[in-house]
Simulated scan of single mutants.
Amino acid sequence: MSSELQEIEDLIARMALKDRAAFRNVYSRTSAKLFGVVLRVLDDRAEAEDVLQDVYVKVWNNADRYRANGLSPMTWLISIARNAAIDRKRRARHSTSGDLLTATLADPAPGPETMAIQSSERDRLDGCFGELDQRHADAVRRAYLDGDTYAELAERYNVPLNTMRTWLRRSLLKLRECLSR
């Protein structure tokens, strides 16, 4: 693990003890990347900012649940951010009353820092997606970026639900292996 990731892991441990300085430090080191993840899922800057605030509240409240188990602390943080964004997107899908004015006025374009981070990570991730079977790669994108449920994906690809779960689990393992090289 790189020294930067080790430092973030140590800061999360301090956050579990309610160390506000550690929280500020984690936020300053990770917020741009997590904002990019959330924005990618929601495609709405105002919504992404709102969800990001919720993400850091969850991180603060659950820092004691992070366990160093060989996974990167960024993996833990990104999972929280992605899941929060997907939850918000699913809730919005089921809501019939939307704020049209906010959706019209919100600037969905990411800032320069976010664009640079996204570009670098996207190139690396695209290369790893290229190593997957095309249908599996598409299913992973739909599940983790678009928020499709396992049931929706199983129906779309005409496979049993457990097969879809296996596709996604194995594909994520392959992606993690590729990204760790």
Score class of each variant (00 low, 15 high):
Y27M: 07
R181N: 12
I8L: 07
A154W: 04
I78D: 05
R141V: 11
T96F: 12
S2T: 15
L168F: 01
E7Q: 11
M74N: 11
L173W: 00
I8P: 00
S3C: 02
F23G: 07
Y27D: 03
V38L: 04
M115K: 14
L71V: 06
R141A: 11
M74I: 13
E9Y: 00
K18I: 10
D146Q: 12
C128V: 12
Y150W: 07
T96M: 12
E4Q: 11
L125C: 03
N69A: 12
L77A: 08
G36D: 06
K174G: 00
Y144L: 09
S95K: 14
N69V: 10
Y144T: 06
W76I: 09
D138Y: 02
L132N: 08
S120R: 15
R176K: 13
S72Y: 09
A22R: 03
L175Y: 01
L42C: 07
S72K: 08
A48F: 01
C128H: 10
V51M: 04
W76G: 04
Q6K: 13
D64W: 11
P112N: 08
E152N: 04
R29W: 05
N61P: 02
P108L: 01
V41R: 00
D146R: 10
R24V: 05
N25I: 00
D44M: 00
R14M: 13
N25L: 11
E113C: 05
T75E: 04
V159W: 02
R91M: 06
H94E: 14
V59L: 14
L132T: 10
V159S: 01
S180M: 08
K33H: 12
Y150H: 13
G111L: 02
S31V: 07
N162V: 10
D123Q: 15
P160E: 09
R181W: 06
E131A: 15
G127Y: 11
S180K: 09
W76T: 08
Q118K: 03
L179E: 05
A137I: 10
I12N: 01
V59M: 12
D44T: 00
Q6S: 08
T75A: 14
V38E: 01
R141E: 07
D43P: 00
G127V: 11
S171F: 01
A85T: 08
Y150L: 13
F35D: 02
T96K: 13
D99C: 11
S28N: 14
G98V: 11
D126Q: 14
Q134L: 12
D99G: 05
I12W: 02
P73Q: 08
L168Q: 06
E131S: 15
C128K: 10
E152M: 10
S119I: 00
Y56W: 15
L42F: 03
V159T: 06
S31H: 15
A84E: 09
Q118T: 10
D43F: 01
Y157L: 09
R93V: 01
S119G: 13
R20N: 13
E155W: 02
V57T: 15
P73H: 06
R93P: 00
S79C: 03
R67K: 15
R181I: 06
D123L: 14
L145Y: 02
Q118W: 06
N69Y: 01
R170G: 02
T149D: 08
M1P: 02
A154Q: 07
R65E: 13
F35R: 03
A116H: 08
S171N: 05
A21Q: 14
L52Y: 06
E121S: 10
S79W: 07
A48L: 03
R141Y: 10
I8M: 02
T102L: 12
I80H: 06
